[in-house]
């Protein structure tokens, strides 16, 4: 159900392929529950700078996982190719938004406090790891990334800072980098590292931001700490709900069709794609945070 009301489960009828993405997400949650045994958080972290710490990203090209119909092609032949998305220069937070930073936000914006937020904008687990409306408590160290925040909440925070959420293309462009290369996704060793990060057990209390990898852009904690909201997380269509071309993303999910994805080797990117597809804007979970971005004054600026 939409409008934040969790009245019941969505009927499965007509949801076939979408179900795979949802099941994938159920798997994530289930894995988390199974592995949520308290693994100690890695050591203490350096303090986050008080001033906004943003990194200028020069832009580039992001090759999405999905394929688009070739213009003019007969719809029935389903001729497709991946089309690189041009990413204009922008600024991105160096680190995910922390509990401390988010606390300052809800102090200034009472409508986003846990006890007053509308269910339209955040589900019942919004900020549930905090002790109270304006108190972080043991489960939410000040320098750890804020989680249990919805897309609406993340977007409101970003707007309050004069920014916005990064687009999928922006986020993925930066996330393709390792410590020395802007695009490390052709390197099997890097992809193996990503899989290793993604398979680490969940921890009850997240470590501080800034304790993970700093990539060549200077951006930190993109992969191993939390999942992150993006502005257009809801741009991944699944079969049966798209326009007349119902097979739009069918090939991405499972089985033999999976090899139709643009780059199956980058399994982590594939996981992120499926994860985003499973989200709804008022969802909150203990592994989903965000960072903010800003457009730079460039012709054809982004939303």
């Amino acid at each position: 159900m939409k409008f934040g009301a969790r009245v019941g489960r969505r009927p499965l009828g007509g949801w076939g392929p979408a179900v795979v993405a949802l099941a994938l997400c159920a798997l994530l949650v289930s894995a988390a529950r199974a592995e949520a045994a308290a693994t100690p958080a890695p050591g203490s972290a350096p303090a986050t700078p008080a001033t906004p710490d943003r990194v200028r990203i020069e832009g580039g090209r992001y090759l999405p996982l999905y394929r688009q119909p070739v213009k003019g092609a007969n719809r029935d032949t389903v001729l497709r190719r991946t089309i690189a998305v041009a990413v204009a220069p922008f600024e991105l937070d160096r680190r995910p938004v922390t509990n401390a930073q988010y606390l300052a936000f809800v102090r200034a914006h009472p409508e986003w406090r846990r006890s007053s937020v509308s269910r339209l904008y955040a589900d019942a687990s919004y900020l549930r790891h905090w002790k109270a409306d304006l108190e972080l408590g043991d489960q939410a160290p000040p320098q750890s990334p804020v989680v249990h925040v919805s897309w609406f909440a993340a977007r409101a925070y970003a707007a309050a800072q004069g920014g916005r959420l990064p687009t999928v293309a922006e986020w993925e462009l930066v996330a393709a980098a390792d410590e020395t290369r802007k695009d490390a996704t052709r390197d099997p060793a890097y992809l193996a590292r990503l899989r290793e990060w993604y398979s680490r057990p969940a921890v009850r209390v997240l470590p501080a931001v800034g304790t993970g990898v700093r990539n060549v852009w200077g951006v930190e904690d993109l992969h191993a700490l939390v999942w992150e909201w993006t502005l257009d997380f809801n741009s991944a269509l699944v079969s049966g709900e798209s326009r007349g071309d119902a097979s739009l993303e069918r090939s991405l999910y499972c089985g033999a069709g999976a090899s139709n994805a643009a780059d199956f080797a980058d399994y982590a990117a594939f996981m992120r794609f499926a994860y985003r597809a499973s989200l709804e804007a008022n969802f909150t979970t203990g592994q989903l945070g965000f960072r903010t971005a800003r457009s730079l004054p460039v012709a054809g600026g982004r939303p």
Binding site: C25, A26, L27, A202, C254
Partner: peptide, 27 residues
């Protein structure tokens, strides 16, 4: 931390999850 145990990340596992969970959403 992100938690995806590699061994579970197979379509087979997904199928099992589908059956096992009645396809619940994450929340």
């Amino acid at each position: 931390m992100l938690r995806l145990s590699r061994t579970r990340l197979t379509c087979f596992a997904l199928t099992l999850m589908l059956i096992g969970t009645g396809c619940s959403r994450p929340s």
